[in-house]
Amino acid sequence: MKYLVYISTAYRLLNQDELLDILAVSRKNNQRNNLTGMLLYGEGTFIQVLEGDADVLTKTYETIIADQRHKNIIKMAEGDIDTPNFPHWSMGFKSASAKELQELGGFTDPKSLGKNWIAAETSSILGMMKTFADANRMSD
């Protein structure tokens, strides 16, 4: 099993209805493809972790890259996992403010680190997202 984490910038700020549409399609596709994960959206920025079969994950990421609703897509981390971190979520979701994210342990605002922020440890990235999920008791 593989995981992948990416960050991207929305071409424009999205409203709640647009975010819910993305979530509904993502959940349907992820259930069909046996993928799990979580999507965070805050102030025009997406961060997503996906987990599943390597080939399916690669095809899904290619689809994500082609999506015209966002730009500046950066793969932050990828690798092998024995068990999924988000096993019960076809796509956990939360729209969060910068203030909410700053209150999490393990979160660093990428803007404060300049161009070297991608060098963050993978465990910190996944740890931050798992902490966010636990703190918000997100559900699928």
Rank of each mutant, 00 (worst) to 15 (best):
T60H: 03
I118A: 14
L20V: 12
G79M: 03
H88G: 13
Q31R: 14
N136R: 02
Q16I: 07
A135S: 15
D53W: 05
E18G: 05
L104R: 01
E78R: 05
G106R: 01
L50T: 03
K111W: 12
T58C: 10
S26T: 14
L20Y: 12
S97E: 12
S97C: 09
H88C: 03
M76F: 07
S95P: 04
A133V: 11
V5G: 09
K94C: 01
W89E: 13
F93L: 08
E18D: 09
Q31E: 15
S26Q: 09
G79V: 03
L113P: 00
M38S: 01
L20T: 11
L50G: 03
M76A: 10
K130Y: 07
G44K: 06
L104N: 08
A66E: 14
P110S: 11
W89D: 13
G114S: 09
R27D: 07
T36Y: 09
T9F: 02
L126V: 15
K28Q: 15
M1C: 07
Q102P: 00
D82N: 10
I125S: 11
L40C: 15
G92H: 07
P87A: 06
P110R: 04
S124A: 14
T9V: 13
A66H: 10
K115M: 14
I74P: 01
W117N: 06
G44V: 04
W117G: 11
I125D: 08
D21T: 13
F132L: 13
L39D: 04
Q31H: 12
K71C: 08
R27A: 05
T131I: 05
R32Y: 10
N34M: 07
S8A: 09
A98L: 13
P110Q: 02
L40P: 08
F93C: 03
P87S: 03
S95A: 15
S112M: 02
R137F: 11
E103S: 12
G42V: 07
L13F: 12
N34R: 15
K94V: 05
L19P: 13
R137N: 11
H70E: 02
E121A: 13
M38E: 05
L57G: 04
G79K: 08
V49P: 00
